[in-house]
Simulated scan of single mutants.
Amino acid sequence: MDQAPVTPLSQLPARDRVSALAVAGGDADLAAELFAALLAGLPGELAALRTEVAASDWEGLAELAHQVRGATRYCGVPALDEAAESLERAARAADPPRVAAAFASLEAEALRVQQADD
């Protein structure tokens, strides 16, 4: 089964306001509120993910990464969403090197999103 080529995260936008607005049904205030909630929750989510990585709790890590994706899907942050999906897949595969790389990517993309906040 062929898979679509993966776009490097650095080529995906940190923030896609058009997508976020579309997901929010054209409501700019709602899109801004969802993005603000994402930003507010990121530090705690990263800390919780880091704890799961350190404990090698792959099931817990996969679940938390899945929850992060629940938020990223609604906020127009495609690179962060892809990084969270990659971390979830790595955790479900219980692959420590992939988990480490995916978590590093997630942290980098979280920083990009925080810096994209304007």
Rank of each mutant, 00 (worst) to 15 (best):
A40R: 02
A108T: 13
D81M: 10
S56K: 13
R73A: 13
S105P: 13
D118F: 15
L106K: 01
E59F: 00
P97G: 03
P78T: 09
A62T: 10
A84Q: 02
A31T: 10
W58S: 14
L80E: 00
L87Y: 05
F103C: 00
D27S: 09
P8M: 05
H66Q: 12
P43F: 01
A90E: 00
L61D: 06
P8W: 04
S86W: 12
L64G: 04
E85P: 00
A36V: 13
G76I: 04
V113S: 03
S56V: 06
A104P: 07
V53W: 05
R17N: 12
L87C: 05
P5L: 08
A47K: 14
G41E: 12
A100F: 00
A4R: 15
S56R: 15
F35D: 08
D117M: 08
L12K: 02
L9Y: 02
L106V: 07
L39R: 12
A14T: 02
T72G: 10
A48R: 15
L39E: 05
A116Q: 06
A83W: 04
A65W: 01
L39N: 06
R92N: 12
A55H: 09
G60K: 08
R50V: 00
E45N: 07
E52Y: 01
A83F: 02
R73Q: 03
L12Q: 02
A100T: 10
D2L: 14
A4L: 14
V77I: 11
L30I: 14
S10K: 06
A110M: 01
V113N: 03
G44R: 08
G44Y: 07
T72C: 03
A101C: 05
E33Q: 13
D27P: 01
L42Y: 01
P96K: 05
A4Y: 14
A14D: 05
G70Q: 04
E85L: 13
A71S: 15
A20Q: 12
A54R: 12
A31V: 09
E59Y: 04
L80I: 03
Q114R: 13
L46S: 09
V53Y: 06
L30N: 12
A65V: 07
L38Q: 07
R50P: 03
